[in-house]
Design a protein around this nucleic acid. Structure first.
Lengths: 133, 133
DNA sequence: TTCGACGTTTCACGAACATCGAACAAGGAG
DNA sequence: CTCCTTGTTCGATGTTCGTGAAACGTCGAA
């Protein structure tokens, strides 16, 4: 892959408030966080976002650099996950308050995951070839 | 005064989450909110901020436009106040979480109020001329 | 090996932003 | 009236940000 060269996850203590607020200052990224709020890990082929591939990559990097998400690589595919625990340990209540607010106003509502496929995650390797919608 | 022409306070319902997060995405503005967090109204001659006059005016406008603060004019002087109630009614817990987090990391710690003068507020018109330190 | 799917990086561009100094407006004090 | 104080507005400047297209790297399958 592009090697994900500059990819680094900040330690829990290194997470900066301003960086978090800055990362959350965008409807698309708030939408991504909302999608991930159920704690499930998502491959970002699953993510439905109305932007170009490269822009999505950029947004996911901002979230990762801010310490909001964790990224894992498996072969050629990548997976995101919310760092809910780390975030709540460092800034108690912040993430929850933002998620509540975002839900009220439907901020980032245009972001979603692929429909159908109730269990489309990393836990299936072979087997049924999984028809894409 | 400059008449404060474009000054408008959004209604409580009009307060936008993205605008609030955007307004809070700056150490100086976070510092201003921290100073106002005690609920006291402050004249912005009291505010000690390491920026130029016009820049402070700008930051206070951003906070006001986002619905975070309320501004009042008395003669040639202006006063700010946190809209804690409105904010908490609309986005419960958000402001508190941000303030807690900002306090932990001392974000915006370089913002303060004039020292001494424990009761420097709008409730004194005449009387003692109030020596400026 | 060749091909295709997937994600990253680079580059460029326009918009938004933070900052300052200068010019301006409105009151208050003399 | 003339200053002085206070705050706004207006460029100007440099920075950051969101965006997409194109090129690239990597992996798995044919």
């Amino acid at each position: 892959m592009g090697a994900m060269r500059r990819a680094r996850h900040p330690d829990p203590d290194e997470i900066s408030l301003i960086d978090v607020l800055g990362a959350l200052n965008d409807p698309i990224r708030v939408g991504l966080v909302r999608v991930l709020a159920d704690g499930r890990e998502r491959g970002w082929g699953e993510l439905r976002v109305p932007v170009a591939k490269s822009t999505l990559s950029h947004h996911l990097r901002v979230l990762r650099d801010a310490g909001i998400t964790r990224t894992r690589q498996e072969g050629t595919r990548c997976f995101v996950e919310l760092r809910g625990g780390d975030l709540d340990a460092r800034f108690p209540g912040l993430l929850g308050a933002v998620l509540d607010a975002a839900h009220r106003d439907d901020v980032g509502g245009h972001v979603g995951v692929v429909d159908g496929l109730p269990e489309a995650r990393a836990d299936r390797k072979p087997g049924a070839p999984q028809i894409e919608s």
